[in-house]
Structures are given as structure tokens and as C-alpha cells.
Design a protein around this nucleic acid. Structure first.
Length: 641
RNA sequence: GCUACUGUGGCGCAGCUGGUAGCGCAAUUGAUUCGUAAUCAGUAGGUCAGGAGUUCGAAUCUCCUCAGUAGCUCCA
């Protein structure tokens, strides 16, 4: 509940939720004259401030995040206004603010191209210069529909029709431009002086691929030109971390036209992946997991039982062997289940935690592919837990903790999402309800924040997803925990309970990395390719000053290799500066410069990638430092310091 | 899959309104043996994603296919 003190000292109360401050404006001239902003659950956002315990509010300045949203939301109106001026037949759909800027979906016969951006930007700047005041007004439903109909805005009419009965239908007007909008907005169009349109893309009306595809124009604005400049520079910098670029530069992996969506890993990429999996195996062993392997390909019968043949067929690679249909596995679970069914189990065996790093193939839509983040063949660090009903909550909590611990190793922060029953689902609703409640309970008991995605679960059960962020802020689902009552039934899985009777186990599917490929991609971007020493494909590069010292360099290399340190020599007849530059660009954690001085004293001159020259040390001394970093898996990537 | 854009030697790029391809890095050869982010010189390497068409003539124009990029849909 929000209390608003008006100039006449009367108090008005609002339900919690977003309160458009323009409402305040209309009722409280003087208190909130130039105010733009909103209050949410009594907390200040936008230009507002709580001034006393009652939750009264007064004019303030921008709060960072929400303030930006208001700024950009108004900017999206300015852009729509500009486009309407240039192409009066454009039909407006929706135009919200996003984390970095805003967009507007527009239905326009004419196809916008990059070259139109300048024109639109120029028109936007004109509107900014005009400093049009934004006015809010409300209309009853019938009038609102009539109004938008007259303006020939069919999408707006549809939006109004879908608003709940009691919704307040508000509009914002700036000059001759009016838009259906809940607000809030800036008081005038004069602030977003630095304007930049970023890209144009297609987007389905209301996100449904059966609907018409509209043109979505993305843009960003700032008050000052310098801010825009900084933003664009920052984006440029961020793009240097792109794993696709670094993957090439650092010889980690590549993609070939011959296998769209099927990544090739180069020796250095495999080194990193192997180290990653070593870490993974250690963590899982400690957490009480065993590991199995199941076949890549299984016959149609199995996929019919699992439900994949009917629910997932368009995504599976299939083939015929000896006149029998087979499918390459898109998921590891059925294989894991066959392993379970290979023997009779007792309740005493539970919880069983069975891991499998299994390569799966899914025929993803070509437009969905993206570097290592979205591929058609990937290795899931899967595991299936077979448990008793009373073990659900604790096992889920255990999995969450394990995933959290794994992510912490890399310094990741993550977002959690809980996805519930989809339209296409197997099994009984009551089982679904129970499963969803268990996942919620586990999250709540661990006091974790999460958002709920209604209807986003897998067809066999609800799930908790862990989302990680890439270099430009896109998030990718990595870890997932899915509770499943369906497959145990479909596969008639059993165990013998304390009562000597057969019972059905409950199954949890889970991944930590999600896909090793995707996780690797995120990792590359997180560290900008400068892997911590323990993960680095080359940990030490030995750089002889000249050919004369190659023998000594080889001796150094042999000593380090005996200690399992990954080392290379740069034997080329280049100057030391050149070799250092190259090793630095390859982001090798340690460089050993060896010349006459070192060969004589049996030492090396050590150069660390982030600190530069750290002086001359004996081989034993420096290898102890390195071994210790490897052993403790110290996060010494310069990106995290 | 959809919308828009892109596709030139291993990599990064240039090639204006059509007249049969250039640069830098890398590679390679030779010289240099040089102390902390690029030594000098030479050589080789591409029928311009693939196909069809327009044209006297196409990397440059048109169409189709493939691949990539951004976003949408979908998803780990």
C-alpha cells in the first residue's frame, strides 16, 4: 500500500504495484510538478522518493535502473513518433524499454534498412528539440477502442480488447502523436538528446510464430553525447570477449560449413575441456555420484516408450539400421533408465546419483545456432537421481548446492527460474502439482530468489534453471534440475521397499554445466580468453632469447613437464619482444625468458601475464607457485581481478 | 523455420556507379642470434560460398541454394 500526501494534506492510498506518477501529476500539481517516475511497493523508483514512514513521496532524481527504463520508454515513443512522421501508414504494436535501450514493433509495408536509421534519428532529434510535453489522459474502453480505430491502429485496438475489464486505459500524447500506454514517462521529449538506432529485426506479433512478423527497431538514447559514446565503446570492448572470436584467435575450436552446429575442438580447446571435466568429476565424486556411459543411438521402441518419438521427433536425427528405425539420442535419460533397469534395486540403495557426460544431438532450427552457445551436438553433464518421495526436497537442495559450488569456482553469478507445466505434457496434473511444490519448497528453504515461468517446463516435469550471462548481457540456460514422475512410470521402473513390495522411484534429471560446449563458451567470455592457470591450455611458455639457448629451454620444459605443467617453447628465430607479444596475446599465464644469464645460474626470468616481469627465480621455486595455483584452482584470471 | 543483413587467400579487411583481384597479419625461404608487446628482405597462396541468369564482359546486377550475424520463435 502506498500513501500519497497531496498538497491539501489529504492522503490518498494506492494498491501496491506500479503507480504511474503522472497520476500524481494530475491530482497534485505542486507536489510533483515535473515529476516522472513510478513507485513500486512503496519503494522509490524513477524520480520519486519516500519522505516519511507513511510512504509519502516527493520529487527526486533518477534511480539508476528504473529511471533508465522510463527514459528509454519515452525514447521509444519518440522513435515511434518519428517513424510515424516519416511513414504515416506505419502501424504501431508495442514499444517497451529493455535493459539496454528500447525497441518498437512496427507493421510497415516499406522495409526499413540501415540507411533509414539516419533519417529516423534526425527526425527523433527534431522531436527532442521541439521539447513536446507528454500528457496523460484516460478513456473508457469503448471510447479508447473507437479512438485507436479512427487512428487506424489495429494492434492497439487488439491490445485494448485484451485488457482486463477493470483496467484503466491510458494514453500519452506528445504533440500530434498519441500512444496507448500505461506509462510512466518523462515530462517532455527534450531530454534524450543523444540518439542512436542500433538494429532492425523481425519479431512476431505477440511472440507467436503464426502471427504476422513485424519490424522491430532497436535503439538507445542518452542525455549526453558522451554517454552514448561511452556506451558504444563499452559494447565494442565487450565484443572483443566474444567466444567465437576468441575461439579462433586462441585456437580453441572452430565451426565448419560442412557441419553446421557441430563444433570442432582443437588441441587447446580439448585441454581446457578435459581440465574442466576433471574438476567436474572431482566435485561429483565428492557429492556421492557414480558415472556411467550409454549408447549414442537407440531404437525407435525406446524413444516411443520415453515419449520422445511423439513429443520431440522433429528435433531428432533418425536413421534405419537392418530395417529398424533408430534415433541418435537427444537426451541421456532413457539410456540412464536402462542402466537402472539392468538390476533390481532396494530402497536402501536410494538416493542413487548416476552421472553421465553424454553427447546428445538435437536438430535445432538453423536460425537458433550461435557459436558454442547453441549447437546441434553437445555434451550434457547429465545425472539422474533415483529417489524416494521423502528424499525429494533434500536431494533437490543438494543439487542446487552442488551447482552453486561449481559456479562459484568460476566467479559466476546466476539467475534462477522455475518453469511449470507446459501445454504439451505427460502424466497426471496432481503429480505435476506435487513436483512443482517440491521444487518451490527447496528454493524457498534455501532462501533463493527466482522467477517463475508458467508453462515453460519440459513435457515430463517442471524444472529449475540456472542462467548465466555472456559478454554482452544475453543470458543462457546452463544448469537445470527437473523432477520427473513420468519416465519411471513409462519405463515401469521399480525398487523393493521396506515392506517387500515393489514401488516406483522418483527421478531427478539435472545438469550443472548444462552443455559443456555452452559452458565453455560462457567461460571464454567470462575470462576474455585469459583462463585461470589451472584451466589454461598452455600454462608456461618458455621463450629463449636466441637459438643458442634452445637446449636450456628444453631442459626447463622437461622439468616442468615432469611435474605435469603444460608448457611450450617458442623456438622461432624471433626477437624476445616478438615472442613475448605473441605469448601475451595468447594469454599464457606464465612466460619464462631464458638466455645466457638464466642458463648459467639455472634459473628463469618469470613474466606473469597480468603483472609483467616478476624477476628471476629457480625452476623449483616458480613451479611450486604454479603447482599451488593448479592444486587450489586459484582464480587468477586477470579478468576477475 | 521467420525478418533483415553478410559471405573476397588460414585470419582481419580494401575493391566507387560491372572491364577478368589487392593490403596487413599468419605461413614459407634467406639474412639477423638480437634481453621483456611486432628485425629486414624475398616467396607462395584466392577463378571472389556454390549454382543459374542478364551482359560483349560480373567479385560487383538478378534469382536459387548453402553458411554466418542480429533479433523473433524454439531451446541446454
Amino acid at each position: 500500500m502506498i500513501k500519497l500526501t497531496l498538497p491539501d494534506n489529504s492522503v490518498r492510498e494506492y494498491e501496491s504495484g506500479v503507480l504511474a506518477l503522472d497520476v500524481v501529476k494530475s491530482i497534485s500539481e505542486g507536489l510533483a510538478r515535473n515529476v516522472v517516475g513510478a513507485v513500486y511497493d512503496g519503494k522509490t523508483i524513477g524520480l520519486m522518493e519516500k519522505i516519511n514512514e507513511d510512504g509519502a513521496i516527493k520529487f527526486l532524481k533518477f534511480d539508476d535502473k528504473e529511471g533508465k527504463h522510463i527514459f528509454w520508454h519515452t525514447s521509444s515513443h519518440i522513435m515511434a513518433h518519428a517513424i510515424k512522421r516519416l511513414w504515416p501508414d506505419a502501424k504501431l504494436a508495442i514499444g517497451p524499454a529493455i535493459d539496454n535501450g528500447f525497441y518498437y514493433d512496427i507493421d510497415l509495408e516499406y522495409r526499413l534498412v540501415q540507411d533509414d536509421f539516419e533519417k529516423i534519428e534526425a527526425e527523433m532529434k527534431k522531436i527532442v528539440k521541439e521539447g513536446l510535453e507528454l500528457e496523460r489522459f484516460e478513456l473508457p474502453r469503448a471510447e479508447a477502442i473507437k479512438f485507436m480505430d479512427e487512428k487506424q491502429e489495429p494492434y492497439k485496438v487488439e491490445l485494448i480488447n485484451d485488457l482486463p475489464e477493470d483496467a484503466i486505459i491510458s494514453f500519452y500524447k506528445q504533440g500530434d502523436f498519441v500512444d496507448l500506454c500505461a506509462g510512466p514517462h518523462l515530462e517532455s521529449t527534450k531530454k534524450p538528446k543523444a540518439v542512436k538506432l542500433l538494429s532492425i529485426a523481425g519479431a512476431y506479433w505477440r511472440g507467436n510464430e503464426n502471427n504476422k512478423m513485424l519490424q522491430r527497431v532497436y535503439g538507445i538514447t542518452f542525455e549526453k553525447a558522451k554517454e552514448l559514446e561511452d556506451y558504444l565503446k563499452m559494447m565494442e570492448e565487450a565484443k572483443k570477449r566474444d567466444h567465437r572470436k576468441l575461439g579462433k584467435e586462441l585456437d580453441l575450436f572452430f565451426m565448419s560449413e560442412e557441419g553446421p552446429g557441430f563444433p570442432f575442438f582443437l588441441p587447446k580447446g580439448v585441454e581446457v575441456k578435459n581440465e574442466l571435466m576433471k574438476f567436474w568429476r572431482e566435485m561429483h565424486r565428492k557429492a556421492g555420484y557414480v558415472e556411467i556411459e550409454s549408447p549414442l543411438m537407440l531404437n525407435k521402441h525406446l524413444w516411443e516408450v520415453s515419449g520422445h518419438w511423439y513429443n520431440y521427433r522433429e528435433n531428432m536425427y533418425t536413421t534405419v539400421i537392418d530395417e529398424q528405425d533408430f534415433a541418435i539420442k537427444p537426451m541421456n535419460c532413457p539410456g540412464g533408465i536402462l542402466v537402472y533397469k539392468n538390476a533390481m534395486h532396494s530402497y536402501k540403495d536410494f538416493p542413487m546419483r548416476v552421472a553421465e557426460a553424454g553427447r546428445v544431438h538435437r536438430h535445432e532450427l538453423s536460425g537458433a545456432l550461435h557459436g558454442l552457445m547453441r549447437v546441434r551436438a553437445f555434451t550434457q553433464d547429465d545425472a539422474h537421481l533415483f529417489i524416494l518421495p521423502e528424499q525429494i526436497k533434500d536431494e533437490i537442495k543438494g543439487v542446487i548446492k552442488l551447482i552453486d559450488e561449481i559456479y562459484k569456482q568460476f566467479g559466476f553469478s546466476y539467475k534462477l527460474e522455475l518453469s511449470t507445466r507446459p501445454e504439451k505434457f505427460l502424466g497426471e496434473i496432481k503429480d505435476w502439482d506435487l513436483a512443482e511444490a517440491s521444487l518451490k519448497a527447496a528454493l524457498d528453504e534455501l532462501e533463493l530468489k527466482y522467477v517463475i515461468n508458467e508453462g515453460d517446463g519440459a513435457f515430463y516435469g517442471p524444472k529449475i534453471d540456472f542462467h548465466l550471462t555472456d559478454c554482452i548481457g544475453r543470458t543462457w540456460q546452463c544448469g537445470t534440475i527437473q523432477l520427473d514422475y513420468q519416465l519411471p512410470q513409462r519405463f515401469e521402473m521399480e525398487y523393493i521397499g521396506a515392506d517387500g513390495q515393489k514401488h516406483r522411484p522418483i527421478m531427478i534429471h539435472r545438469t550443472a554445466f548444462g552443455s559443456i560446449e555452452r559452458f565453455f563458451g560462457i567461460l571464454i567470455e567470462q575470462f576474455a580468453g585469459a583462463f585461470p592457470t589451472w584451466l589454461a591450455p598452455v600454462q608456461v611458455k618458455v621463450l629463449p632469447i636466441s637459438d643458442k639457448f634452445i637446449d636450456y629451454a628444453k631442459k626447463v620444459k622437461a622439468e616442468l613437464e615432469a611435474l605435469n605443467i603444460k608448457v611450450e617453447i617458442d623456438e622461432r628465430a624471433e626477437k624476445i619482444g616478438y615472442k613475448i607479444r605473441e605469448a601475451q596475446l595468447q594469454k599464457v599465464p606464465f612466460m619464462f625468458v631464458v638466455g645466457e644469464k638464466e642458463a648459467e645460474s639455472d634459473t628463469v626470468s618469470v613474466r606473469e601475464r597480468q603483472k609483467g616481469d616478476i624477476g628471476s627465480m629457480s625452476i623449483e621455486e616458480i613451479s611450486n607457485v604454479i603447482l599451488n595455483k593448479i592444486k587450489t584452482r586459484e582464480n587468477d584470471s586477470p579478468q576477475l581481478m
